[in-house]
Design a protein around this nucleic acid. Structure first.
Lengths: 210, 210, 210, 210
DNA sequence: CATGAATGAGGCTTCATTCAT
DNA sequence: TATGAATGAAGCCTCATTCAT
């Protein structure tokens, strides 16, 4: 009846997590019923509740896990002590590239984390938002340090800048990966590398600097 | 049994629209029940269905109306033939300012249009997405014209630039107005003017250009 | 907005009756909403309730009116004093013919009276049933008189016979006029005359008597 | 809160089917609410939807099952190669008797299948109609064979005859079992045997042949 | 006579969750 | 661990009916 063969019990939770994530990503949190998830996973309703206390908890679990992975990637940024703007641009470029690549390889997670979590209930939504905040914080730290190193003008408002840049990057990931309609099946027509470079360049030099 | 009948007649639909919008904005489309809306509006459940064929139609109506209003504001941008980068920056600044101001004055609409529509069903979400697309299109048109006027470097990829800038602006509006948690009750701590200027500056000159 | 031109007030009730009948016939009593009726009639909800106390009353009114008309036709039967079986067959033939013709000319009424009334509420259904009973009674009277005149065998059970014949005729009208699926738009492929003759013949001589 | 859980398991669907059928038969499809059914069955509303996808599906299920049972009975008819009219009459008599007996033992099903299905929605009504069609087809087949065997006049219109006879039988079952008002609680005052014989006789020899 | 906005009960269905097995 | 039947609270929507104008 069910298609899976002898799923090891340890893998069961991961399987449910994967299925749930893909359905959350495809249809949104509210429109995804636990019954849909277990149907696709080939297990019974009760099993779901053996691994998760509730539907909400499953989403929270997914988001927390994803957030951890994402931040791991992002925290590798700016670890060197740059000395020139060019070096800093290079580092930023690399960071963006890692971000875009991670996003490309974790589409489902990304859409839930950055977008679809919005439609969910407050706790879920909050968890998703924290990802954003974390990214913004990192960005701000980096800008501050750069300014201390005299790599950037002293009169800039670092807080606003980091907000602007973070939103640019995150929003761009959304429309790049999922198109204008946030369609999970959209196929990007530009490479992660190109996007990362463009974003870094715009952030550093603006549209006039090309 | 009922305490109010035919109190306002013509304004009833607007009242329901307002209440629905504020609840969609506060709790999201799915979590808002028609029964919640009518309760706050002080009318019976049936009355809602006198004015709207369905809950979905009411959201669509709100979005379509809002989209029209917003685009009206945005289409006023770049109507002059700029001759220098400085003039163009000024125009952009003004456009962003109008946008940020409109957003500030239409918080509920904004959160639905730009964000919360995401969690809703496809038709609603699609309608909301069109707003984004319209903004991006306008941005792209403007950049193209500027390039033709030799105000911008010829080697830039206009399509990507407009995506980046649009996402920066829209994303920034979100976090400026609603904070990192997209809280409808968040109070911005920076003026619309400052945000608009910052965004325009970043877009034109990047972080290095301050 | 509405398509009718200056309906005289006296005709209004008839108009509503007609529209209601056609919708009851097409969709059945329960599936027909008062709002459907008034929409097609081009009047407001309130108007309906000026002419009828309730939806049920409107159906009752239609049925009573129709019943009266139908029975008027049927009561013309067997008014002569037949002397032979052939004469009686002729008379029966004529009666059936009148019945089938009336049915053909009053499709909507017929389907409500004989069939669709069944799905309605008890009072309506009861009213419709009375038509059946009236027909059966008439049939029984006729058979009894024929037996008294020695036109028929003395050992027959008149009550059962009239039930059988009435059911044959009424059921046949249904399937003749509306086809096996009781489709109001079905077109009969046999003439009323042929049907009437066949029914009369079968009733008199059975399948062996052709 | 709830007093019964998993009491019978396998028989739950049958129980729901039985209750639903009896209520459909008593009050008609539209007037029967799912809430009525589950109340009588002593289960929760949700349980109904565990066994049936919808109210409509439950009616369809009942009808399909009933149709199968009924046709099983009817298809036993005329299996022998009759040689004389008398033998054929005997066979017909037996068939009618089986039909009347089945009807008597399945009152609820019968009223839904032959009558009350009419008031329901199209799919249900269609399913019920097919029963009628099946019976008529069988009747026609039998008549045709009899004519080929020279047991019946060659000039008869078999199609019309079978329509007439089928309607007679079915209509008669209705009024015999449920009385003129189609009352589910009506008690027949004539035996199935007597009815079957009368119907067969009338069909074969007409009212004159007694 | 006529309108049409308003009511509110009630119907069908979904779904997160529980729990005996 | 796993099942799947069962629960019951909502949710969306329909519709007969009322009534101020």
């Amino acid at each position: 009846m069910s298609s899976q063969r002898k799923i090891e019990t340890v893998e069961r939770k991961q399987q449910l997590t994967d299925v749930a994530l893909s359905q959350f990503a495809l249809n949104g949190y509210h429109k995804t019923a636990v019954s849909d998830v277990v149907k696709e996973a080939g297990v019974s309703q009760g099993t779901f509740y053996w691994y998760f206390r509730s539907k909400e908890e499953s989403a929270l679990y997914i988001i927390e896990e994803g957030k951890r992975e994402l931040l791991k990637v992002l925290e590798q940024g700016y670890r060197n002590e740059e000395a020139t703007v060019e070096e800093m641009l290079l580092e930023t470029n690399r960071l963006f590239y890692d971000f875009f690549t991670f996003a490309e390889e974790n589409r489902n997670l990304m859409i839930l984390l950055l977008i679809k979590g919005v439609g969910a209930d407050t706790p879920i939504h909050k968890a998703a938002s924290e990802t954003f905040t974390a990214i913004e914080k990192a960005s701000q730290r980096n800008l501050e340090r750069a300014r201390e190193l005299n790599l950037l003008p002293q009169n800039m408002d670092v807080s606003i800048q980091s907000t602007l840049i973070t939103n640019m990057v995150i929003g761009t990931i959304s429309s790049w990966l999922f198109g204008p309609n946030l369609d999970i099946n959209y196929k990007p027509d530009v490479s992660a590398e190109k996007m990362a470079t463009s974003a870094a360049m715009l952030g550093f030099y603006g549209i006039t600097g090309y």
